[in-house]
Simulated scan of single mutants.
Amino acid sequence: MRKIIRHFRQKRRAAETVIQSYQTPPPSPSHSHRAQQKNTQQQWQPMGHIYYLLDTLKLCYQSKAGLVTYERISPASLMALCEELLDGKLTQPQEMHQLSSLFTLSVCGVSWEELGHQTRVKAIPEAAAMRFSSMESRQTEARFQLANRRSDDAITSITELGALTNSLQIVHNLSVEQFIAMLEKANNGVPATLSKAIPIKADNFAQALTQSDKKALAQTIKTIESRYLYT
């Protein structure tokens, strides 16, 4: 199934559409210009901005009772939540090899790409993540996905990627408050023309695939199955 999904993502990337356009398209080009555009239609360039959707904050960890996930956490209630989880008999992080399971705090986001007079916004299921043992701990690792990492390639969690990659910024020894502050500072640096026109909300990340993606995936699976049946 992973191979089928990977094949589907490659097909979707090849036929990717513009989600949002912020400028009026230019007049109809000439035939030679259209041919040139066709050759460069896949060369979307990142605009260098990521906007973090702070209403998508998610906390995950392995407790003594099992895997725990809290979604859409308010930053203001994060400290009280972690303290309560650490105090609970069954909600305490599971210990393995005398080490407690780490909390992982992640957030979704969006980035922008441009091609000529067109701009599109891309959803990022995991734009930044931080691992920590408690709210007071400074032995932490925060990872920020860079805008040049294609969201279609973001199948692997950024917490599982190796450190030797040019698609991540890794920062050590941050407090949770500093991590949140960095997200807010990055959001303030995004031009208002982009941040005020974001068509993607927290609900868009409720499922891994959109309805159109599911239909396209079903069609891809059907095509692959028919090839195997008649070969």
Rank of each mutant, 00 (worst) to 15 (best):
S133C: 09
S134D: 09
S134H: 04
M135L: 15
M135Y: 15
M135E: 02
E136W: 01
R138P: 00
R138S: 09
Q139H: 09
Q139C: 06
E141Y: 02
A142D: 05
A142Q: 06
A142W: 06
F144I: 01
Q145L: 15
Q145C: 14
A147F: 08
A147M: 07
A147E: 08
A147W: 07
N148I: 09
N148K: 12
N148E: 11
R150V: 00
R150A: 10
S151L: 03
D153A: 09
D153T: 05
A154T: 06
I155T: 04
S157W: 07
S157P: 10
S157Y: 06
S157E: 08
T159A: 09
T159V: 15
E160Y: 11
E160Q: 14
E160S: 14
L161M: 15
L161T: 06
G162D: 14
G162S: 10
G162E: 13
A163K: 00
L164M: 11
T165M: 03
T165Y: 01
N166H: 13
N166I: 03
L168I: 10
L168E: 09
H172R: 12
H172M: 10
H172Y: 13
L174Q: 11
S175D: 04
S175Y: 01
S175L: 07
V176F: 01
V176E: 01
E177Q: 13
E177W: 03
Q178R: 12
F179N: 04
I180W: 06
A181C: 07
M182V: 03
L183Y: 06
A186F: 03
A186G: 02
N188Y: 11
N188A: 15
G189T: 09
G189W: 04
V190P: 00
V190R: 00
P191R: 11
P191V: 06
A192H: 07
A192D: 13
A192E: 15
A192N: 08
T193F: 09
T193Q: 09
L194I: 07
L194S: 11
S195I: 02
S195Q: 10
A197S: 14
A197D: 14
I198Q: 03
I198S: 02
P199K: 09
A202K: 14
N204L: 00
N204G: 11
F205H: 08
F205I: 01
A208Y: 05
A208W: 08
A208K: 14
L209G: 02
L209M: 14
T210I: 00
Q211R: 12
Q211T: 10
S212G: 05
L217C: 05
L217V: 01
A218G: 10
A218K: 13
A218P: 01
A218T: 07
A218V: 02
Q219G: 07
T220S: 13
I221H: 07
T223Q: 14
T223R: 13
T223H: 13
T223L: 12
I224N: 04
I224Q: 15
